[in-house]
């Protein structure tokens, strides 16, 4: 956290709404991304991300400045999304729901768009196969590039539990790949060379 963000945090501690807005602006993408990947639905992701920031605002006095702020924020988001997932069955996904992504290409051609949408659909279907906590582990590892230790802190798990969940989730994702990818059985071997060969 830089000096400016520390200043905003001090402002939030005093109840300053403007400082809160600056913090939201700075951290909205990682929080929203986690919620979206966890819930797979734009509206639910927005609600979850808003709820995360509100909970963070209410609990800001309990935040330990020695800890990473983003890890703390993502921890709130992850726990909220896991609870939501346990409470409700996940909705089915459609390509129309796919939101804009941070892709540098400003004007992708329609073919690329379709390909990207298809990829995202596959990804959501794959993630939907996992239980909420395993899904959170995968999201934090691959999108937020967290270490095992950081994931453990975020999800209130031990490091060995994170490693075991990560292994189980990867195995499940790999095993689900042929059922999610339409041409996996036919063209997989021709298209991709094994990394071990």
């Amino acid at each position: 956290m830089n000096v400016q963000e520390a200043g905003w945090l001090q402002g939030v501690l005093k109840g300053d709404e403007e400082a809160f807005a600056r913090l939201v602006e700075a951290y909205q993408t990682p929080v929203y991304n986690l919620c979206y990947r966890m819930l797979g639905n734009m509206e639910e992701a927005e609600d979850a991300a808003q709820e995360t920031f509100w909970r963070a605002f209410k609990a800001i006095r309990r935040y330990d400045p020695n800890r990473s702020f983003i890890t703390w924020l993502l921890s709130i988001a992850a726990h909220y999304c896991i609870d939501q997932q346990r409470r409700f069955t996940p909705p089915s996904l459609s390509i129309e729901w796919m939101p804009d992504e941070d892709i540098p290409d400003a004007a992708p051609n329609p073919e690329q768009e379709v390909y990207r949408s298809e990829e995202q659909r596959m990804l959501h279907n794959l993630l939907n196969q996992l239980n909420p906590q395993d899904r959170a582990v995968i999201i934090l590892r691959y999108w937020h590039e967290m270490s095992h230790e950081e994931i453990a802190q975020t999800l209130s798990l031990t490091e060995s539990a994170v490693k075991s969940r990560l292994h189980r989730a990867r195995l499940q994702l790999a095993n689900s790949w042929p059922s999610v990818h339409p041409d996996a059985h036919n063209s997989e071997k021709e298209k991709y060379e094994s990394r071990a060969f």
């Binding site: 941070d102 990804l123 042929p178 094994s194």
Partner: peptide, 21 residues
Amino acid sequence: LDTSWANVENLLICSPMVSAP
């Protein structure tokens, strides 16, 4: 398993962060 995981991992690594609306 190796082929499937290579594909899945590639998909995970290449998928960008989703921005808030």
